[in-house]
Write a protein that binds this DNA or RNA. Structure first.
Length: 605
RNA sequence: GGCGGGGUAGCUCAGUUGGUGAGAGCGCACGACUCAUAAUCGUGAGGUCGCGGGUUCGAAUCCCGCCCUCGCUACCA
């Protein structure tokens, strides 16, 4: 059995995955940033014996969802329901193994969010103060800076955004714009004095700094960016003038129709509320505590780089304040002394033609469309091997077709196919090996050694390195077949069977190591080699109820009972084999030139 | 403007704490094999490691300056 490598000695792992925003369907850039990496990590951790709790949900509050609802002419809750379901189905289709994927519009989430707020308030880390902000006169809602445009007071550019002028690059305050107007409906914003609650980050700065000093193994961009932010913290408003969100649970505020908690304040609390909901749904309401109150638990957060500030500063600040561990102390809050993040893993951006995915510019490939045409493992493979792990990465159909056809299908799929075919044709079962030769042992040793190398890489979220090492073993196995030429050993069946057994064992090993990356095909290969039952469990879509609230869909799954273990699994000679079917379909080269109908490549002209 | 990431073979990228003659895949050329999804295996061509200085016995790898590019810049999510 392969050792659990690296510093991961704790047995419990909390995988906290960024919450997709439910104002529309998600594109492949989103899932390449948080979805697939967090799932590969969680599946690996489960296979190596850790108890994993992987939670997330759709983020459904905030101005953009209200705006989108008006645009579509539906009530805001209806809009949230619609995109919640679309996103849930996309993530299920990808095979992301959430222990619970829920949403922020549950009663449970409202309760947990309000308790967190109250704990912070009691400890004095949340304070009310008057502030001036823009609102829409027709709706009374907060108008975020970027929803305001006008003429730049510095350069005279007519379409400057409220926060920054795209023409001269200067940072702006929306109140300084000449002739300001709302980008939503063109009306003139009203700048009003209003009272809001602020998270007192300066009162948490010292504690945050001390904590951040202990975080040494984060990706460099995350740690540097965070340290820089902490040098200059200002109090941050955590309420908005809005009717869509979690109410402020204080007298005088509770029934105020236009005061709600800021969407980001409630969204990060989702990690905790989802854990609590998960515990309740599994019949042990206190089970979440093992992942939140035990400092030995590893808590790994996954997100795109635009979310770093919320996970490395704001959320830890909220936790410290709740725990009474800020610069002026306090009492542990409602939920006890909660663990801060151990790892904050941030991805860069998947770009298209060098720019961010953008639905408004037609630069978008939706997850649902992609899955319908190509299936989950082709996308998962691509993201793992060519995703934006360390730097912005351009998605091209040409690259996707090439990776799929020459790597996934030709190198790995064909190895499985040729090995199983030969054994099936000659023996009809997994052959009985004779005495091993050096060439056999060399390949087997390389394959076994890879478990530690790949495991080490995955435990540190080095996905490209991990999957590259597995592909290297696949290459060694193809070389091995060229050298040993089992198809020429008809007059030496014992040697032939030894070679076929060897290569099948290595196919099995590679399949174990590919399992976190491609659970769907891993299950098929497992069965192809005689395995029975569930090897790599997939998430299930369930409809659940909540007292006093409407039913809603969630993803859950019974992953612990799956057979997958991170170790070489001895294949059993004599196990009957069937004629194999190709696992990975090759794509038409024309796709590389034209793109699919639903996302055609635009040629310049 | 400030901060951060990149700039390595035609393309996409690896290159741990500076050290044997700089790597992989794809593409290209030639060859081998024919079990397999016309897959696989071998050989070869091809690089001033963005530019200019510096530290060092020695730098793609450290320091300084510059150029190009992408992103972030917190009350957008």
């Amino acid at each position: 059995m392969g050792d659990i490598v690296g510093p991961m000695t704790s047995s419990r792992v909390l995988t906290a995955v960024a919450w997709p925003y439910a104002n529309g369907p998600r594109h492949i850039g989103h899932v390449s940033g948080f979805g697939v990496p967090s799932d590969v990590y969680s599946r690996y951790m489960r296979m190596s014996g850790h108890q994993v709790l992987m939670v997330s949900g759709t983020d459904e509050h905030g101005t953009p969802i209200s705006v989108q609802a008006e645009k579509e002419g539906v009530p805001v809750r209806e809009l949230a329901d619609k995109y919640n379901r679309v996103i849930v189905e996309d993530l299920q289709g990808l095979g992301l193994s959430y222990d619970l994927f829920t949403r922020t519009t549950t009663k449970n989430h409202y309760r947990v969010t309000q308790e967190m707020f109250l704990s912070l308030h009691r400890n004095g880390y949340v304070v009310a103060r008057p502030t001036r902000g823009a609102i829409s006169p027709s709706t009374g809602r907060t108008l975020p800076d970027r929803y305001i445009e006008g003429t730049c007071p510095i350069c005279g550019y007519a379409s400057a955004r409220g926060d920054q002028c795209d023409n001269c690059g200067n940072q702006l305050d929306p109140i300084d714009l000449i002739d300001p107007r709302s980008r939503i409906n063109g009306e003139t914003p009203q700048f009003v004095e209003t009272e809001h609650f602020f998270l007192d980050l300066p009162a948490l700065a010292e504690s945050l700094t001390e904590w951040l000093k202990t975080r040494e193994d984060w990706r460099p961009n995350v740690i540097k960016f965070s340290q820089h932010l902490i040098d200059d913290l200002k109090p941050r408003a955590i309420t908005r003038d809005l009717d869509w969100g979690v109410p402020v649970p204080l007298d005088g505020w509770r029934d105020e129709p236009m005061k709600r908690l800021y969407v980001w304040f409630d969204a990060v609390i989702g990690y905790l509320s989802a854990s609590i909901e998960w515990a309740a749904r599994t019949g042990d309401p206190d089970a979440w505590q093992s992942w939140w109150l035990d400092p030995e638990t590893t808590a790994s957060y996954f997100m795109g780089k635009d979310n770093i500030v919320f996970h490395s500063v704001i959320w830890p600040g909220i936790l410290l304040g709740h725990n009474g561990q800020g610069d002026h102390g306090g009492e542990p809050g409602t939920f006890g002394v909660l663990d801060l993040p151990t790892e904050v893993v941030s991805s860069e951006y998947l770009t298209m033609s060098g720019s961010k995915f953008s639905s408004s510019r037609g630069h978008v490939i939706y997850v649902g469309d992609f899955l319908r045409e190509f299936g989950p493992d082709a996308l998962r493979y691509f993201i793992a091997v060519a995703g934006p792990e360390n730097q912005d990465t351009d998605f091209t159909w040409e690259e996707f077709v090439r990776r799929n056809n020459t790597e996934l299908a030709a190198q790995w799929g064909n190895l499985v196919n040729r090995a199983v075919s030969m054994a099936w044709k000659n023996v009809g079962a997994i052959p009985q090996p004779g005495e091993l030769q050096d060439v056999d042992r060399t390949l087997l040793d390389a394959s076994r050694a890879a478990f530690d190398v790949v495991g080490e890489a995955l435990s540190h979220s080095h996905f490209k390195h991990g999957i590259g090492e597995v592909m290297r073993i696949v290459g060694l196995a193809n070389q091995y077949l060229s050298e040993t030429e089992p198809w020429k050993l008809k007059d030496d069946p014992s040697r032939r069977d030894t070679v076929l057994w060897t290569v099948l064992q290595v196919v099995s090993d590679c399949n174990v190591m590919f399992t976190p990356f491609m659970p769907h095909s891993a299950q098929k290969i497992y069965q192809m080699l005689g395995g029975e039952g569930v090897w790599a469990a997939l998430p299930q879509l369930r409809t659940v109820s909540e007292d006093g609230g409407p039913d809603y869909p969630v993803l859950m799954g019974d992953y612990a009972s799956a057979a997958a273990v991170w170790a070489s699994r001895p294949i059993v000679p004599g196990t009957p084999l069937a004629k194999p079917e190709p696992l990975y379909a090759k794509l038409d080269d024309k796709l590389a030139e034209t793109g699919p109908e639903w996302a055609p490549i635009e040629h310049e002209g």
